[in-house]
């Protein structure tokens, strides 16, 4: 079959549609009455629940920690207060990124060119991975919040050494994960273990799609 034959075939298909196809205006009219779902209403209940729990955790935690900083700084363990503050700040940043991404996705202009819109959408969707990277940075503070100045004054070298090693290991793991959670490692075993499940699949796919689009825009490929 030649190029012109394919074009002629398509033209005859077009003619067939022209004669046979019509729009049911009453039904189309009903679609226009559809109300835009809010960002939150369009989320799955489990995601919404997790997000709400996260927000409540950050808000309550912030109130408690701010009060401790202001009125009881000398009475509480500095390890606890700083560990908790770091944990809350990192959680707040992750939630903010997630919410920002959700809102911006809804605002992407679909009347823009196909590649521009698709690139922006895939970039925004894949940015959820940033939340995971930031949340992993919390790991070390879960090994320090229960320490106190008296732990070091007690002179229990074995306990201090073991705790120090654990904190060091957690710090290395969290920094390593922060640096290595990216698309180029998507086929590694550790990556698959962390990001297994249908919730993560679309996000990992979006990353791949983003790269595909970047590649597509290059000339002569």
């Amino acid at each position: 079959m030649e190029h012109t034959e394919i074009l002629n075939l398509w033209k005859s298909y077009d003619q067939k549609l022209e004669q046979a196809l019509s729009i049911n205006k009453a039904t189309a009219q009903d679609v226009l009455k559809l109300k835009t779902k809010s960002v939150l209403a369009s989320m799955k209940p489990i995601k919404l629940f997790t997000l709400l729990v996260g927000c409540v955790w950050v808000m309550l935690g912030s109130v408690i920690i701010t009060n401790l900083f202001m009125y009881a700084y000398d009475k509480v363990s500095h390890f606890f207060i700083y560990s908790a503050a770091i944990q809350l700040i990192l959680t707040a940043i992750a939630i903010a990124i997630y919410l920002y991404q959700l809102v911006v996705i809804q605002q992407v202009d679909v009347a823009d060119s196909v590649l521009k819109t698709q690139k922006r959408l895939s970039y925004l969707k894949s940015s959820t991975l940033w939340c995971a990277r930031i949340l992993f940075l919390q790991l070390p503070v879960w090994t320090t919040f229960y320490l106190s100045e008296s732990t070091f004054l007690s002179g229990n070298i074995a306990y201090i050494t073991i705790n120090g090693i654990i904190t060091l290991i957690f710090t290395c793991i969290s920094v390593w994960l922060f640096l290595n959670i990216n698309y180029s490692n998507k086929d590694k075993k550790w990556f698959k273990v962390i990001f297994e499940g249908k919730e993560w699949n679309p996000i990992i796919e979006s990353l791949g799609y983003y790269r595909e689009i970047e590649d597509y825009t290059k000339e002569n490929k």
């Binding site: 009453a26 039904t27 679309p202």
Partner: peptide, 30 residues
């Protein structure tokens, strides 16, 4: 843009439409 996004989303997730009684497109036999 909507079709490509829909196609990509639908490979992993199910979507639901407004429960309309009639189809938007109607065909005549030719």
């Amino acid at each position: 843009n909507i079709s490509i996004s829909f196609y990509r989303k639908n490979r992993t997730l199910q979507t639901s439409s407004l429960p309309l009684e009639e189809n938007i497109f109607t065909f005549q036999e030719i």
